[in-house]
Design a protein around this nucleic acid. Sequence first.
DNA 1: TATGAGCGT
Length: 311
Amino acid sequence: MMQPGAGGVAPSAISQQYGQQPYMMMAPPPPPTAQAPPMWAPQSQVAPPPGQLVQQQPQPASADEVRTLWIGDLQYWMEETYLYNILVHTGELVSVKVIRNKQTTQSEGYGFIEFSSRAAAERVLQSYNGTPMPNGAQNFRLNWASAGEKRSDDTPDYTIFVGDLASDVTDYMLQETFRARFPSCKGAKVVIDRLTGRTKGYGFVKFGDESEQLRAMTEMNGVLCSTRPMRIGPAANKNAGGSQQYSKGSYQNSQGSKNESDPNNTTIFVGNLDGNVTDDHLRQVFSQYGDLVHVKIPAGKRCGFVQFQDR
DNA sequence: TATGAGCGT
């Protein structure tokens, strides 16, 4: 399959040639791969006559016919020609586009793939998502393109950090490992190195319930995922819900932010807590940072104090 | 490897 820089046309040249067109790669010369599906093609995919792709015309966009997929975790060399070549055999590809940094023109690591119908897009999403990409060390990361629609996240995420992941652990594997015990587990992401396409050995797991997040932090630490025991920690502050924003500044020196100079103070103040957070929650969350002396949420308060043995 | 990042002209 395509090597970086291989093929008759350099991807950058294609960008320049089609950059102003609404649909790039719409009528390219049929590449060799259009003749016969490669070995990695799912059995369900049957390649139609190569000429058919050229006839595809994009239908008018309508709200109930989303035909575009978002693709992420792309390595830098995975440009339009690459994406085109690995998906053209579906026979229903309309356009591909890799998003680039305006200044550097380097790929931002994601792009959009438009199909002739929603059904075609769905087939590709179902059959390819999570499967290995040809010539890449990573798996396809696909989703419906949903730009414009707010990423409707009115429900908060409760995220944990998971380290020590074996090199074969996928998003799916990680999520299933947790979902088996925590039904509110709603996603997992293994972090991929953009240069190599390989896992960085850590990831994040999201929960809908804070109580399950907290339980998972203790109950899943050391549990096997694939071949290695996971090491679990709190996720640093992004989009964290409720009291988990503690790492973004909701905690402070217990004497207040105006007076953080007491070298003997070992107590931090935790604010903005949910009403149902208990002393035990705080203990679970903070015990990994050091030995705790005392944890207290005063009755009826939405804040608490966590005292460590040392600073 | 040890705290990412995912929506465009």
